[in-house]
Design a protein around this nucleic acid. Structure first.
Lengths: 166, 166
DNA sequence: CAAAAATTTGGGTATACACCAAATTTATTC
DNA sequence: GAATAAATTTGGTGTATACCCAAATTTTTG
């Protein structure tokens, strides 16, 4: 019984749902790219993988990773690599949901999947979580988007605001 | 007859249609604000009107107006004010159409007019003209949006690409 | 025409994003 | 197990955007 409770806590902790405070406007477009890349890569990711993935100098990557770590999204072990913190995971799940919802939306207006994805990549960092949640509700919480499955951590229960014990 | 021809030329010159080259991504979010403000104000606009309208120091306004003039969107008579060039008019008509189309779109997904307008203001500068034209077509070229009438300079004839004589 | 108001200029700050070169750490190979 | 190679970080720079203040300039007004 105590064990079940613990597992439930872990589930909440890893979900977007657990961080009702963020607006979705916290990160610059480029930082959004970094987090999405790291989540999609999975586990611990090295500087070189990111710098070649995002076509940027390793020194730029190193500095950006440091900033994301200072902001609490990443664990950074110097010379070893980064992985997402629990906050980082929850936040990046939102980033990916946002990207997919917006891309899906644009495909309903005559853009191809690729066009929609490119277009959204340019502006998504400036679309608020509130707007994404409303769009998501209005679309009936679609499960599949143009870039793969949409993860519905929070969108399904906008009214519920679970908080972590303090 | 020669007179009619001349008027026709003027009509084209002042229309979005006449500039098939721009992508809609030329200007930063703030510069978009400046041009929209100037078009809505109409005629010659003074630095003070803009700086109080956009809540920014007059010195900042003065510098930005200079940049927009150098880029060809404004005529700037020092100490007197600015007005839109023909390019500036055509471009700003697109900016306003983009703003209205995107705002209208978001109101179809559960956002209020004001929410949609605020949301769009944050990201519109990063939405391409191609995407706007596709969305506009797909919506059936709506004539009214949440922020007033939508001006359809170009959207009605995507296939036609008039060019200025050189 | 002198004072007041508007505008511009010069100088300074901050953020975001990028690069290169040099220093440091880790990994490899002999 | 060192020497070399590869990866990473640090320090220094550069560009672009956007903002402010103070001082100089121009225009307006009383």
């Amino acid at each position: 019984m105590a064990n079940n409770k613990y597992r439930f806590f872990i589930f909440l902790y890893m979900n977007e749902q657990s961080y009702p405070e963020f607006t979705g406007l916290e990160l610059s477009p480029r930082k959004v790219d970094y987090l999405k890349f790291i989540l999609e890569k999975g586990g611990t990711v090295r500087t070189t993988e990111i710098s070649s993935g995002l076509q940027v100098d390793p020194s730029t990557t190193s500095k950006t990773l440091n900033e994301l770590a200072n902001a609490g999204y990443l664990n950074h072990v110097p010379y070893r690599g980064v992985d997402l913190t629990e906050l980082g995971k929850a936040y990046t799940q939102f980033l990916i949901r946002r990207h997919r919802i917006l891309s899906l939306l644009l495909t309903h207006y005559g853009l191809s999947s690729e066009e929609a994805c490119d277009e959204v990549s340019r502006f998504e960092a400036f679309v608020s979580r509130d707007a994404v949640d409303k769009i998501c509700s209005s679309m009936g919480h679609p499960m599949f988007g143009v870039c793969g499955e949409i993860s519905h951590g929070k969108c399904l229960h906008e009214e519920t605001h679970h908080r972590l014990p303090e």
